[in-house]
Design a protein around this nucleic acid. Structure first.
Lengths: 219, 219
DNA sequence: TTAAAAATTTAGAATAATCTAAAAAAAAAT
DNA sequence: ATTTTTTTTTAGATTATTCTAAATTTTTAA
């Protein structure tokens, strides 16, 4: 059985590797987990001994099939709890992360199954992030950043990339939400900032950085 | 800030002392927390240093005002979560304890407040145990064990004393539940076992031990 | 009231997770 | 192709929780 710390390492490795594509470096993990590289090295040895990761000294770390499955279970729990907090308890999307970081470690397969049913087997959390099913399968989605949408094109908001509290609060303030219909009315050639119209009514201005972090589908 | 272990000690001291009446002994705690007396002694020193308990060597331990407040917060969370699991997720009353033991340690006053509202500010959990309000105040109830109810008297089930899984399953099987109307039709003078009628329909037989653990109000 | 039994504490050690400082390896730059 | 810089690992400690075994204190019983 894994400790909370071990689960956090696996989750962090999963995210930093880009769903398990590229190897993750010690310093990246130290940064992401707000700890020291030496601490990370110690933990990597432990996770490798448990066959949850493949760890090659000085090179980096990758998840094994087993490690990836554990990571996806934690991510599933995190996203289901976030959905619960917003849909049922009335949290706003910028308030849920810290609480879900705690709830994701609760151990009870029955609880997660019942929660999933209670929520209507949601496919995505309040930030639009896909919820893995109980076998760790992720729904595939073809989303593009708003930054890549051509002027005059219509698009629907599906997710946000980095769900930091300040970014989410900012989006709420200007009227951007999951499901909103956006049209890019103008793109500044100099800094790639854009003017948008939300739901055919509200106008807003977004920096390139902001538009990179809003994921949409055409139409 | 308290660790999970510290919270469990405070909760255990609260329960074993009978809501803070009598001092609790080292061995009692070791028994209740499934650990060794030596371990308990170590932790008691730590809790005393934090002024959560008054600890007198060889004599026993009592909660301070601060310790009692912490214990009641954990108990509040435990009972709210149990209520959620039964009322919203469809758990049965014998399945909730272990999960609530984990959930009770989640730290978020906002979460607890929102959960309390979502559940309609319940006064008791699925076992009939009173839920302290956010200030640690417990609703007072005048409940008596079924063992003390006279023959032919009518009574309503309000709570169970020891909510062990086997006992709860057994009660469900014979048809006893919180809110059920009971009548004691016969009491055996030898072993104090009783015959009861549930809701004027179902008949059942209960040992003295079982009837000691069912709490009722007259009528 | 003294001896035996039970309960409790102390001493010393183990495991997990963390740290700082020093050493070693890899990458970047001259 | 060296030297310098950066990254990573190792070595050695620290804190929290737990344990066993030995010592001590309290309680019970002869």
């Amino acid at each position: 059985m894994l400790t909370f710390t071990e689960e956090n390492y696996l989750k962090s490795i999963y995210h930093l590797s880009g769903e398990g594509q590229k190897p993750v470096l010690t310093t990246q993990l130290a940064e992401g987990l707000d700890t020291r590289p030496a601490t990370v090295t110690d933990m990597l040895k432990k996770l490798a001994a448990k066959e949850l990761i493949v760890y090659e000294k000085y090179y980096g770390v990758e998840l094994t099939r087993k490690g990836k499955a554990e990571a996806l279970t934690v991510i599933r729990k995190h996203r289901l709890w976030e959905t619960f907090l917003v849909e049922k308890l009335g949290f706003s999307w910028d308030e849920v992360h810290e609480v879900a970081e705690q709830l994701e470690h609760i151990r009870s397969p029955l609880l997660i199954e019942k929660l999933d049913i209670f929520l209507g087997r949601p496919k995505a959390d309040p930030h639009g992030h896909p919820i893995p099913d109980k076998h760790g399968k992720l729904p595939v989605t073809a989303q593009t950043p708003l930054a890549a949408v051509a002027v005059q094109q219509q698009a629907t908001v599906r997710a946000v990339r980095h769900a930091s509290s300040v970014f989410l609060k900012y989006l709420s303030k200007i009227g951007v939400y999951i499901g909103a219909s956006l049209q890019v009315t103008e793109r500044n050639a100099f800094d790639h900032s854009v003017h948008i119209v939300i739901d055919g009514k509200k106008k807003a201005f977004l920096s390139r950085e902001a538009s990179e972090n809003i994921l949409v589908t055409p139409g």
